[in-house]
């Protein structure tokens, strides 16, 4: 199951509730990871562009698109293993396409729904090309907006029992010096 489908299901069915004031007045742009959309569509006939925008809009409704985006969107420059490859300058040069796109949107935030793309944009392109926006995973946006309701005493008790059983099975003792 993709992260988009699960997040959408949680929000749609009311299993999680979001505090919409968290990013009020902010604008966001969305980076479309190649694997989730274009390549998923070409391999399995399904992309998640609409789900991604729907979930993002639940947290931050003002979306400004990059051009091009979606199925014709540009790679962040670190795909296909390039994030871990030794050709660093080539990865950064490639990423300039993305950095220029991001800056042109003039938003406050960037949604990057993939570990690899997020690292390239947040940890590399931001400083190489002075990107002013802060980058978020899509699940980070949702997580930051989720309204926390503490579990009931009964639920906590049951969870502690399960936890203790697991820690006993796995020989975990947090009080022990590690």
């Amino acid at each position: 199951m993709s992260v988009f489908e699960l997040l959408k299901e949680y929000i749609e069915t009311g299993r999680i509730k979001l505090d919409k004031s968290k990013y009020e007045g902010k604008k966001i742009t969305i980076h479309d990871p190649c694997n989730y959309h274009r390549k998923s569509f070409m391999s399995f006939g399904q992309h998640f562009l609409d789900e991604c925008r729907w979930v993002t809009a639940q947290c931050c409704p003002e979306i400004v698109e990059m051009e091009p985006h979606g199925m014709n969107g540009l790679c962040c420059g670190a795909g296909g293993g390039a994030w871990a490859s030794p050709y660093v300058q080539e990865r950064i040069d490639y990423g300039k396409w993305k950095a220029d796109q991001i800056k042109a949107t003039g938003t406050d935030l960037i949604c990057a729904p993939c570990h690899n793309c997020r690292d390239q944009i947040m940890k590399s392109l931001t400083k190489e090309f002075d990107i002013p926006q802060r980058t978020y995973y899509i699940w980070e946006l949702v997580s930051d907006c989720v309204i926390m309701e503490p579990w009931s005493e009964e639920e906590v008790k049951k969870s502690h029992e399960e936890r203790d059983k697991q820690y006993e099975r796995d020989d975990i003792d947090l009080d022990e010096e590690y």
């Binding site: 190649c34 274009r38 390549k39 070409m42 199925m71 014709n72 540009l74 790679c75 420059g77 670190a78 795909g79 296909g80 293993g81 390039a82 490859s85 050709y87 080539e90 990865r91 490639y94």
Partner: peptide, 24 residues
């Protein structure tokens, strides 16, 4: 060459290819 490793296999080429070449 280094090129197949600098290419990120993003698939834009294949998506647009009118002949359906399996570039990736």
């Amino acid at each position: 060459s280094r090129w197949p490793w600098i290419c990120t296999i993003c698939g834009r080429c294949e998506y647009m290819c009118p002949q359906g070449v399996n570039l990736m």
